[in-house]
Design a protein around this nucleic acid. Structure first.
Lengths: 195, 195
DNA sequence: CAACGATACGGAACAACGTTCCGTTTTGCT
DNA sequence: AGCAAAACGGAACGTTGTTCCGTATCGTTG
């Protein structure tokens, strides 16, 4: 954490109304995301925060920026959990398994987030890039460790795995018959070198 | 096949202009889907077919109906391949593996189809339902056979597997670094009972 | 073959969305 | 207090899917 509580990053404005509005917007967005999902209309967020659309767009130039800001802390936490698990888990593959579990849990509990992470959807390239930039290196580290231990096949890249797991989580919030967590577990299990 | 070539199903109109327009629309849609993807604007399809929007919507009341009509033959072929593979393949799990390959190939080569198959997106429930109705029973049959042979774990339902594989294919058309086929193979491999 | 009712056609119009723009208001410094 | 810079609000734009209805066409019947 940089400063005290109301830290909005290094782009904090000199004007207190601007700082307050940004904070209010973040809270409103988080609340709306919980109830209506990440794809909720931008207008809903602005009106929940009691500000105009212009204000929202000045603080968060694109929809993706707002989503990133809301979830930044949790993504960071997930990224930092990688190396920790590598030390605490019995084997690298187990660390990988637990880390993927963490990631899946995160996505599955954020209504619509996984759907919006897909690369092919326009307007969300920034979001996609942020997640990948932050998490692929961590995944690479886990994958490399498991490879070095001879536990897994070597033909799946970290990027492919991350995107695959993200994709598996799409639509997992609505339908209790679709078990994304189990599927992710099966996928990670399939990574293991068959003997 | 029911009749001869220009078969448009049992809902064929008595008027030849209507029949011709429906056929033209199907061709236009297929062409547009190839070049611009399945999510291409409806207007593009109507104008490519040289008809008005009203005409398009009368023949295909929802966007999903048009997509279903375009791909119906290929979905049927995939469904029918299931039982055939079960006879030709050395083991049920191998049949399952080959069948999933078929499905993945189909999805990956249809720009944007997998993305639109997701259940959570509104307006496409019909499409989602059609695919699931047609393919889940086939998948169930393959899964049951593999289970009976003791080859696979039993905690993954056909629906979960189908949706998972469909999800894995999202965005696979654009990015050569994301290998959906391999991921699907890993997933099916993970289904195998570890020994 | 002429007329007429049923059928289908075209595209303007609507609603919902993300995003942009600009006249107005507020802020903080001098 | 005054003033420039910064931020505000929301109308307006462009793009979607979809609906609606006045007009044109078709096939049948007399």
């Amino acid at each position: 954490m940089n400063q005290k509580d109301g830290d909005t990053g290094d782009t904090a404005s000199r004007r207190k109304d601007a700082r307050r509005n940004k904070e209010t917007l973040l809270e409103a967005a988080a609340a709306v995301f919980v109830t209506s999902g990440v794809e909720a209309p931008v207008r809903d967020i602005a009106s929940r925060a009691g500000v105009g659309l212009g204000t929202l767009y000045r603080h968060f130039p694109t929809r993706a920026d707002l989503i990133i800001a809301v979830y930044r802390h949790q993504v960071e936490a997930c990224a930092e959990a990688g190396p920790a698990l590598l030390e605490s888990a019995p084997t690298p593959h187990d660390a990988l398994r637990q880390w993927i579990d963490l990631f899946v849990d995160f996505l599955v509990t954020k209504h619509g987030l996984a759907a919006v992470l897909r690369s092919d959807q326009s307007g969300f390239e920034g979001l996609h890039a942020y997640f990948l930039d932050r998490l692929v290196p961590v995944c690479t580290q886990l994958l490399d460790a498991a490879t070095a231990a001879g536990e897994i096949r070597e033909d799946v890249t970290a990027l492919t795995l991350m995107r695959g797991v993200g994709n598996l989580c799409i639509g997992a919030e609505n339908d209790p018959d679709y078990d994304a967590r189990r599927l992710a577990a099966v996928l990670v299990d399939g990574l293991r070198r068959q003997n």
